[in-house]
């Protein structure tokens, strides 16, 4: 199974690789969520949803269902 943003643990960093669905909202891209950019999992809300990310220097919150559509590569 492909690793997605939803799999990241708190503090984990990864590189955004691709979207598993074409219908990813443009707003997400505009906020800097683009292939090649770094993503850090800051923390999850209580009940594990939504999640709080730092993508490319922008801090944003998205729901887990969206996070599951964003594939990542490990960052070394």
């Amino acid at each position: 199974m492909e690793k997605t943003i939803a799999h990241l643990k708190r503090g984990e960093i990864a590189i955004i690789k691709s979207f598993s669905e074409t219908d990813v909202p443009l707003k997400l891209l505009e906020m800097g969520c683009l292939p090649g950019n770094l993503v850090t999992m800051m923390q999850s809300a209580p009940f594990q949803d939504p999640i709080y990310l730092n993508i490319n220097g922008t801090h944003l919150a998205i729901r887990r269902e969206t996070a599951r559509k964003i594939n990542v590569d490990p960052y070394v």
């Binding site: 909202p25 707003k27 997400l28 906020m31 939504p50 709080y52 922008t58 801090h59 944003l60 919150a61 998205i62 729901r63 269902e65 969206t66």
Partner: peptide, 10 residues
């Protein structure tokens, strides 16, 4: 569609 994006400002 359950879509949600929000900036967390400083």
């Amino acid at each position: 569609k359950s879509f949600f994006v929000m900036e967390m400002p400083a």
